[in-house]
Each structure stands twice: as C-alpha cells, then as structure tokens.
Amino acid sequence: MAKEAVEGELNIDPMHQFDIKYFFDIDLGIANMGFTNSALFAFIAVAAIVVFLWTAVSGHSLVPSRMQSVAEGIYEFVRNMVRDTAGDEALKYFPYIFTVFIFILACNLIGMIPYSFTVTSHFAVTVFLALSVFISVTVIGFLKHGTHFFSFFWPAQAPPALRPILCIIEVISYLARPISHSIRLGANMMAGHAVLKVIGAFAGASALLVVPSIVGVVGLTALEVLVAVLQAYVFTILTCVYLNDALNLH
C-alpha cells in the first residue's frame, strides 16, 4: 500500500494527523498504557469543561452573565431533549447524558483548533462511548422490567408463525445499534478532518491553487464546526432514543 515518492510537490498525507504518539510508556505486558496525545487532549477537554462550567456558574446571579447564560442554555437544551424524547422518568439519567454530550462537544470543538488532536475521530473512543451507552441502557432496561425486558424483542402483534424470525431480526437490529452509533460519530469527524487536510495540501502543489485552496479550507472549517456540534447532538439524541426504548419498551 505504500506510495512511492509522489510526483511533483503534491504530497498529501491526510491520515497523519490521526497518528497516536506516546509521550512515555507504561508497559503492562498485555498492552502499553502510556500517556498518548489522544489522552492528553481528552484531559484538556475535561479541564476545559470544568473550567468553563465552574467560572460560568460561580457568579450564580439571578440575572445571568454572558457565560452563565451560555452554560444554562446548554444545560436546559440537553434537559429538554432528555425530557422530550425519553419522558420525565429519564431525567434520573440526565447527568450521564449531559456528561456524554458536553464531553463529545468539547472533544469535537477542541479538535477544530489547528495542530490539535481530535479525540473523537478514533473508533476506539467512539466505540467505548457507544458501548457504555449500550450496556448501561440494557442494564437499566433489565433493572426496570426484569425478564419482562425480553418482550422488547418479541413482536406480540405479528402472526404467530413469523414471531421467531422477527425476534431474531429485532435482536440483530438491537445489536447493530452501538456499532452504527459509534461509526456515525467517528466517521464524520475523521472524514471531515481528512478532507480539510487534502484541500489544504493542494496549496502546496502549485501557486495557482493557493487561493482556491485557502477559500475552500475556510469554508470547510465553518462546515466542520457545524458538524462538530451536530454530531454531538445526534449522538446524544440517539442515546435518549435508546434510553426511551429501554424505559418504555416501545
């Protein structure tokens, strides 16, 4: 797969920005648990969230300052989303959903800063997020309904002969959820950043291409900011939908 020296000056390497670099190694025998640039930017995201929310609500005035109204806006937005899609009962799980939302949002937006690293562009991260949602939602379903939760997979209205087949189909589509859930976020972030890199690399190819490439990068960056917010929103609303399925069984 290795390309030979690329002809001319066009040297496009869009995947280089996703390389994982180890700052130091902690070899546990089974895996290297060292500190990577991915972990660093995840920590930066968490620190940014803590600092932002802390300073925003530290004034806690009745008439909010600008920062406070932004923080309250995000809070209320996610809270309404949870309540509208999953009902009042789901508000118990609001802290978790808010954490997921703001973590993905912070990671996506920090990834938009040049020379930074997009944590959510790696499937290892998104699969972890989606699997934790999947497992916790399944556990919540079992805790609430007990073995009655299996009726979620059993189509009681269907003709009796078809029921076992439909049951298998339901199980497959349930198992497919975390995968499509994680691929959507990871692929969107990775594709967007790779495209940015490719368009940017055209500027190095010839002097004629510099201006169009810069214009294209500026436009695409604006689009990518939109994608960053939108994908955080989509991930969260799907979490709410799955939670609703587990709580209310259709």
Binding site: L175, A176, I179, S180, I183, R184, A187
Partner: peptide, 9 residues
C-alpha cells in the same frame, strides 16, 4: 450506515 451495519452484524 445502519443498513450496512445490520447486515454485517
């Protein structure tokens, strides 16, 4: 993505 993932699963 949903369609392909379902078939693959």
């Amino acid at each position: 993505v949903e369609l392909v993932v379902s078939v693959v699963v």
